[in-house]
């Protein structure tokens, strides 16, 4: 930006941007602040809350009372497990479509995308009944499989847009230089594919971590990930603001940090490569 900007204008922009950014971030910031207050202080007026003493009691209590760790592990296992499964299925597919495109590759890609557009309620009842009949309700395996399937189209698409950018001339050049197939895969293909696979993994873990339709429908307690666990605070008993804040803070912190690192990939992944 070489354009001249007057100091007044710059000051106005700075103040406006910071205030709006602060307002948007406030609900998260406030949740974190409340999580370090006692239950009786957490329901006071904002100024009283700020001046109240800090404590980590809520964090200990959430873990002690509700077995928070188990739900956290469910979230980790389901989101990571479904992402890895989806990658295993999608990498060969995306690879073939990017390097050996056939006449129908484009139609196939569009069809995969169309499965993502199907609203979940359209298949809720059969899936629920099948899960009930096969004893899959409230199991991590069941939920992992569903998460794999709902995110598979996005994974294939994202990998495809990354793989398509690898110039196939490089492969041919390596082959001309007498590289064996193993060498080609290890030294040429993998290094070029890894960044794309890593970003896909990151985005998909975020999506799976925050998915809140199937997790709420198909789990109750044992396999409940954090989305479902937090939902149990919707009908609370007694004072619970500080505990809800502590549980929420722990639930969103890991993904918030991952998310901040993946801003660029996020745009690309969520728009199926339409905006880069």
């Amino acid at each position: 930006m070489a354009r001249k900007t007057s100091p007044t204008r710059q000051a106005v922009v700075t103040v406006a941007a910071w205030s709006i950014g602060f307002l948007i971030f406030l609900p998260i910031l406030w949740t974190v602040i409340l999580s370090f207050k006692s239950e009786t202080d957490a329901i006071r007026t904002p100024l009283q809350v700020l001046s109240a003493p800090w404590t980590t009691a809520s964090y200990a209590e959430v873990q002690g009372r509700s077995n928070y760790g188990a739900h956290f592990m469910n979230s980790v296992i389901i989101s990571l497990g479904s992402t890895v499964l989806a990658l295993l299925v999608a990498i060969p597919a995306a690879w073939a479509m990017a390097f050996q495109p056939g006449r129908r590759t484009k139609d196939l890609l569009m069809w995969m995308l169309s499965t993502k557009m199907m609203p979940a309620v359209g298949v809720l009842i059969p899936i629920y009944l099948m899960f009930r009949d096969f004893g899959l309700l409230d199991t991590r395996i069941g939920l992992t499989v569903v998460m794999t399937l709902i995110n598979l189209p996005i994974v294939v698409w994202m990998l495809y847009t990354y793989f398509r950018e690898i110039p196939s001339e490089i492969l041919e050049a390596a082959r001309m230089d007498g590289a064996s197939l193993t060498k080609e895969i290890v030294h040429v293909l993998t290094p070029m594919a890894v960044p794309g696979i890593a970003s896909t993994l990151l985005l998909n873990v975020i999506l799976a971590w925050n998915e809140a339709f199937w997790t709420l429908q198909l789990t109750t307690s044992k396999a409940a990930p954090l989305t479902a666990f937090i939902a149990s605070y919707s009908s609370p008993e007694g004072l619970f603001y500080a505990k809800l804040s502590a549980a929420s803070t722990m639930a969103i912190a890991p993904i918030l940090i991952l998310g901040w690192f993946s801003q660029k990939q996020l745009v690309r992944g969520l728009t199926f490569g339409a905006v880069k």
């Binding site: 709006i20 950014g21 602060f22 948007i24 971030f25 609900p27 998260i28 406030w30 949740t31 975020i206 971590w209 925050n210 809140a212 709420l216 954090l226 989305t227 479902a228 937090i230 939902a231 605070y233 919707s234 809800l244 929420s248 639930a251 969103i252 993904i255 918030l256 991952l258 998310g259 901040w260 801003q263 996020l266």
Partner: peptide, 18 residues
């Protein structure tokens, strides 16, 4: 920028209850 983007990463049940 980081502050503005943050809400997108908050799971729906948390944002609704907050």
């Amino acid at each position: 920028r980081v502050m503005v983007i943050a809400p997108f990463f908050v799971m729906p049940t948390v944002s609704a209850l907050v």
